[in-house]
Amino acid sequence: MSIKAKNVNYTYAEGTAYEIHALKDINLEIPDGQFVGLIGHTGSGKSTLVQHLNGLVKATGGRIYFDGRDIYGENFSMKELRSKVGLVFQYPEHQLFETDVLTDVCFGPKNLGFSKEEAQKKAKEALRMVGLGEEYDARSPFELSGGQKRRVAIAGVLAMNPRVLILDEPTAGLDPKGRDEILDQIERLQKERGITVVLVSHSMEDVARYVDRIIVMNHGEVRFDGTPKEVFRHYKELEEIGLAAPQMTYLMQKLKEKGADVDTDATTVEEAAETIASWLRGQ
């Protein structure tokens, strides 16, 4: 289920005084099963881009291909696209509304036309996928902790069996453990079920730790696109566009400035610990 954007442009309020060119000539391809991090400062166009990927917003220019098929083509079903490309918004728990967890998660598959029994089966599977056991099915979503509510909301999207899961800052406002739990869970879905994941994040540390590839947006354009190590080598340019590198990148750079002969590519604590241990041991 690859997604391909070809010369995608998007202009808000075209032809008026408030015209904003939010996406400029975006070309990218996300292959099946990849874990992608999408970063950029507020207003860089990343949310607009992800809304294009599941057809919520229609490009004012260019084409988007889902599995090789033009999503703006005549015979293309947008409804199918939206079930295949699941989008989890920021603070998705604000959208929980049912009286119990299971019914809430059933909403998506029911809307896709599944019977009550089938919808429940899918909902239960999705809840187990995010690590919520049967004991939560009958609970009110409003009695759960922040991290649990968010997992219910993610299950609501997973119950539609998406092949691609896009999450817009899924860990904002969660405590460190809650953050790790959600991201570990998402990583498991990507590794074990082969779901393609696009993670929109402001945390460079999280991105460095989990994703295969980082796409950096700035002023509606793709500024960098590569593995975390490749992208974070440009830490000075990232700072110029309102971003940063992970703490560990700065640490390795500082160490090198002080004359240490170390490879500065480590971006996570584990990698830095290994690099530094070998350096200290003179290996």
Binding site: Q90, G173, H202
Partner: peptide, 12 residues
Amino acid sequence: DEPTAMLDPNGR
């Protein structure tokens, strides 16, 4: 009270 939870690195 968590004034930076929704901000990008520069904003934070």
